[in-house]
């Protein structure tokens, strides 16, 4: 894994990013509907609307607007939010840590349980517990994170009220964070009551996000493991005195992870997209929640900035997944 490779990969991502930026920009302006008219409501006069339009540069041609937007973007300026009257970059930077911590925990949960399910399912190959695992995966995979969130609220928040269903942590605890990475920071600063509260509040949103990813990853990994179990090196390992479980996790697993990661990589980006609704449902103060507010307020610069942020996150996740695959498979390293 060399630097040239990394740089190459990043350069390859640039056109995708440029495409994402352009398309959002055009979509927001070409699709029928007038954001300014919606922003001002029915009471506004023609003159008011024209003035506002000029203020946000919306009276220029689309091409002209785009050039201005791009030239600002290159200097790192994402513009000013219409509804919050703050710098978009700063706004997003403040909320991003919240989402990142949630997403990382959700991914860990998803991957951890996916591994357990896939390994157990493979271990029970051809016996009835395997069907149980398959059935569980089949039901879990069909239900999107949004419905999981609502169901979990109903079950663990209302029917058996043992879990908090709103916010990032107990409001009674005061914690002025420097970085907004509550989880990491509270651990480092030894404020474990904060850690506990943050984790506790994170359970339901993180599990809602994790379940679909867990199911799809488990399904893909299990079928890759099954294919791997029929390979000759596994047969050979079975004659060499390794136990059944050991053959699976120390011989087949790593090989199965290569195609499984490649196949389920996209799903990791879906999890990030899922934060939009899940954060909304749980009142979680991340960029997903912010995105819905931005849309409701027709805050074009903020929407634009958030879509860009999501696109960058997606591309980074894809990059990490590619790196992970090259790390796993020595045959890919020296090409």
């Amino acid at each position: 894994m060399s630097y040239p490779y990394l740089i190459n990969r990043l350069l390859l991502a640039l056109p995708t990013l440029a495409g994402a930026v352009t398309i959002t920009f055009i979509l927001l302006r070409v699709v029928p509907g007038d954001p300014i008219a919606m922003m001002t409501g029915p009471g506004a006069t023609e003159a008011d609307i024209a003035q506002l339009r000029a203020h946000y540069g919306l009276d220029q041609s689309i091409a002209h607007q785009f050039v201005i937007y791009l030239s600002q973007l290159i200097t790192g300026d994402l513009g000013t939010s219409i509804s919050l009257r703050q710098n978009v970059g700063e706004l997003i930077a403040g909320r991003l840590p919240v989402t990142i911590e949630l997403v990382v925990i959700a991914m860990l949960i998803a991957v951890g349980f996916a591994l357990i399910l896939a390994l157990k399912g493979t271990f029970w190959r051809g016996r009835w517990p395997e069907r149980l695992v398959d059935g569980f995966i089949g039901v879990t995979v069909a239900i999107p994170d949004f419905l999981w969130a609502l169901s979990l609220i109903l079950i663990l928040g209302v029917a058996i009220p043992i879990m908090p269903i709103f916010g990032r942590m107990d409001l009674t605890i005061s914690f002025d964070s420097w970085t907004n990475f509550y989880l990491t920071e509270s651990l480092l600063r030894g404020r474990f009551e904060v850690t506990r509260s943050v984790l506790y509040h994170m359970v339901l949103p993180a599990v809602s996000l994790a379940l679909p990813l867990m199911a799809i990853t488990a399904r893909v990994l299990k079928s890759c493991l099954n294919a791997e179990m029929n390979r000759e090196y596994v047969t050979l390992a079975r004659t060499q005195g390794f136990g059944r479980l050991k053959v699976i996790y120390s011989q087949a697993l790593r090989n199965a992870l290569v195609p499984a990661t490649a196949l389920s990589g996209v799903q990791f980006t879906f999890l990030i997209g899922g934060t939009v609704l899940v954060e909304r449902i749980f009142g979680y103060p991340g960029i997903g929640n912010m995105a819905i507010d931005a849309v409701i307020n027709r805050d074009l610069p903020l929407i634009q900035g958030l879509v860009l942020t999501f696109a960058i996150l997606f591309i980074l996740v894809n990059l990490l997944i590619d790196l992970f695959i090259t790390f796993l498979d020595p045959r890919l390293r020296h090409v």
């Binding site: 000759e232 090196y233 047969t235 004659t239 790593r254 796993l328 020595p330």
Partner: peptide
């Protein structure tokens, strides 16, 4: 007793990632 196998295909019989 312990019985060993010498397999047919030397490429696919070794674990490629180790």
């Amino acid at each position: 007793p312990h019985i060993s196998l010498i397999p047919q295909d030397p490429l696919t019989s070794l674990n490629p990632v180790k």
